[in-house]
Simulated scan of single mutants.
Amino acid sequence: MTNQQPPGFPTDRLEQLRSGLSVVERRIDAACAAAGRPRSEVTLVVVTKTYPASDTRLLASLGVREVAENRDQDAAPKAADCADLPLVWHFVGQLQTNKARSVARYAHHVHSIDRSRLVTALSEAVLRAERPGLGCLVQVALDGGSAAGRAGVDPDRVGELADLIADTPGLRLDGVMTVAPLTGPLAGDPAAAFGRLAEIATAVRASHPAATMVSAGMSGDLEQAIAAGATHVRVGTAVLGARSPLG
């Protein structure tokens, strides 16, 4: 990673981000070693939600290339502000169909596909924008159907939604995503939850070999996700710290 600091940014914030990023990278290195996986198999996606574009610029100066946002009203202006940077943008939050056109302008991957209407809306937006195919991941709910659980589709519906994405113009099926459940039989056991996601990902790849992305793991459970085969870990707080965010 480069040590070059963009002009006009406070050294203390740069050093905070450098330190947080270094700690997370060491955790990923150790988790890959423990799992017997090459470090190159795991991509760190830094979740910059609620933090200003200036932090995204500092992260880019430290070598970060993959960033994530979860609200279009924050992500769209930030992506525009950082359009000159060589960044890959991941949208990881729940997405309303009326925001599909905006998200399709800047996102390279949408991790939170959970219904057919959203597939249709994104396809229309991508085709209207005449942009390259948008990568899509099916968000899997592993909470056992609890009303208080995470968003996403039930495991038994993943294949159906994956097929729809793969067959829809303008979209590309990239893989699957989950968040460790707060309720249900797998609550409190991220290793078991991510193991279940790995089984689902294998089933999806059987029909769609190019859908290799497995997005799982955040600041508190990235090790368990990597052990279960995650290819992308989404980390925010552990990199950006407890600094008071904007918005």
Results as ranks from 00 to 15, higher is better:
residue 60 A to F: 09
residue 222 L to R: 05
residue 161 L to K: 08
residue 141 A to M: 00
residue 55 D to Y: 13
residue 115 R to T: 10
residue 66 E to Y: 12
residue 147 A to G: 15
residue 181 P to R: 00
residue 157 R to T: 13
residue 206 A to V: 07
residue 159 G to D: 15
residue 14 L to G: 11
residue 221 D to P: 13
residue 110 V to R: 12
residue 50 T to N: 05
residue 233 V to A: 09
residue 218 M to Q: 12
residue 177 M to R: 05
residue 52 P to M: 07
residue 217 G to P: 10
residue 65 R to P: 06
residue 230 A to P: 09
residue 237 T to M: 09
residue 158 V to E: 10
residue 183 T to G: 00
residue 236 G to C: 08
residue 25 E to M: 05
residue 231 T to R: 11
residue 85 L to F: 09
residue 119 V to D: 10
residue 184 G to C: 07
residue 116 S to W: 00
residue 27 R to N: 08
residue 171 L to R: 05
residue 225 A to F: 02
residue 98 N to S: 10
residue 94 Q to K: 09
residue 60 A to L: 04
residue 105 R to L: 11
residue 44 L to F: 09
residue 74 D to P: 01
residue 99 K to P: 12
residue 107 A to E: 04
residue 223 E to T: 14
residue 9 F to K: 01
residue 13 R to Y: 03
residue 64 V to N: 04
residue 122 L to A: 11
residue 49 K to W: 12
residue 55 D to R: 01
residue 188 G to R: 10
residue 20 G to A: 10
residue 106 Y to S: 09
residue 1 M to K: 03
residue 73 Q to W: 02
residue 223 E to G: 06
residue 165 I to D: 04
residue 49 K to P: 05
residue 57 R to M: 12
residue 141 A to I: 03
residue 18 R to H: 13
residue 125 A to D: 06
residue 78 K to L: 13
residue 160 E to W: 06
residue 170 G to V: 13
residue 70 N to K: 11
residue 96 Q to M: 11
residue 191 A to T: 12
residue 108 H to S: 08
residue 178 T to E: 03
residue 84 D to S: 14
residue 22 S to F: 01
residue 125 A to F: 08
residue 169 P to A: 00
residue 109 H to M: 06
residue 118 L to D: 09
residue 32 C to H: 03
residue 42 V to I: 11
residue 61 S to I: 06
